[in-house]
Design a binder for these strands. Structure first.
Lengths: 218, 218
DNA sequence: AGGAATTTGTGCGTATGTATC
DNA sequence: AGATACATACGCACAAATTCC
């Protein structure tokens, strides 16, 4: 769980994470158990511990080498090559639920609705908002984060996901294989750019019999 | 301490070492502490653990890459390049103290007396017995274990050291910088060849102000 | 085939030492 | 000088895998 949190970017590089006792208490485990987990992450190079000081998130050596660095869905049997099909692009207000955390600096945004597939199988429905001042050239299609970096000049450095369950919205296409109102794994995301401003908020409904949320590590 | 035991060859490759509770008790530590130590050695590739079965000594991947694999002396400040100067070679009976463990298959042996130096500084006196049937060509001088391997066709696979304190013998040369009778670190060694027979027994007196016994690991 | 004993795996809670702030 | 936070260690309980009878 800790590794997932780190890769999901809940703490930024160099930041000090909560102390052993606080983390252990919040996760409901004993300090010794937490220490073992942290030691493993330290050995993997994800954390750095300094006695008397704290535990810090280590900066990744090779930055954003993988365009799917923040992609968190996988088939139930594991893996799957992600693709996306755009359903609609329009201007629409952000749902209040999506700005519960940090407020984006922009108030009006593009709304992008996509159908996500893994290995060609539709697995999820995405609804994404980005700053309306960005020019949406036809170049954006599959890898949105890559589009940000190459066309818009910033890149996603950190994301925060919140996972729950929600009913599939009415605009879901039939290809997803679920009826509107069906219970789906539901992900709300805020994404921060390299300049540490909220560049994107999104929500995703995942077909629970086809894919799952899974933070992976290298 | 465990790593030293393993590198000293007190258990042979593939052998199962005592259980956690036994080892912990014999070392006077708690089981958890021992587990941490064993986990570290496992990570270093020296041990292999199997749940429900036991803990086993792993065969070294690259065998005897270092001719000083079983060399256990170092300067007080650490390290030092080992050299040896032969003082005498003759045939002499094995002291009873040296055959207290496993009996060598041979009874009459060559006795080699050497002065050991580290970085040119004399640090120890060695007295070594090997099977008298071996032909001592002039090739043997510095690295005796290498001589065994290249000239005699076997190699040392395992040694067992026993460390105590003993008085320096009368035949010690003045260069060692200690008077006869001076208290020295004293090492008795039995060395097993790849065919698992005792090929060598030795004893070493170490100048306590110049060097120390130290099992090192890669 | 099955069950008991053995051995490592995981986890809890606590106390104390040491480095840093 | 004191508070904070990680490092090390102890002892215990139970789970899971293996081994042995």
């Amino acid at each position: 769980m800790l590794g997932r949190e780190i890769l999901a970017g809940h703490w930024r590089a160099g930041e000090r994470i909560p102390t052993e006792s606080v983390l252990a208490a919040s996760l409901g485990v004993a300090v010794g158990t937490l220490r073992k987990a942290v030691a493993e992450l330290e050995q993997r190079g994800m954390l750095e511990r300094r006695q008397g000081s704290g535990t810090y998130v280590r900066a990744r050596a090779g930055r954003v080498k993988n365009i799917y660095e923040f992609f968190r869905l996988e088939l139930l049997q594991g893996g799957g090559l992600p693709t996306a099909q755009i359903l609609a692009v329009d201007a629409a207000p952000l749902p209040k639920a999506l700005i519960a955390h940090e407020q984006p600096s922009w108030r009006s945004g593009w709304r992008i609705r996509r159908l996500r597939a893994l290995n060609g199988t539709p697995v999820a429905l995405e609804e994404i908002w980005i700053d309306q001042r960005h020019a949406l050239t036809p170049a954006f299609s599959e890898a949105l984060y890559q589009f940000y970096k190459e066309q818009l000049g910033f890149w996603i450095a950190r994301v925060q996901d919140q996972i729950s369950v929600d009913a599939l919205p009415a605009w879901a296409p039939a290809e997803l294989g679920l009826q509107a109102g069906a219970a789906c794994t539901y992900i709300e995301r805020q994404a921060w750019s390299n300049s540490q401003v909220v560049e994107e908020v999104s929500r995703t409904w995942v077909h629970p019999q086809r894919a799952r949320y899974c933070a992976r590590w290298p």
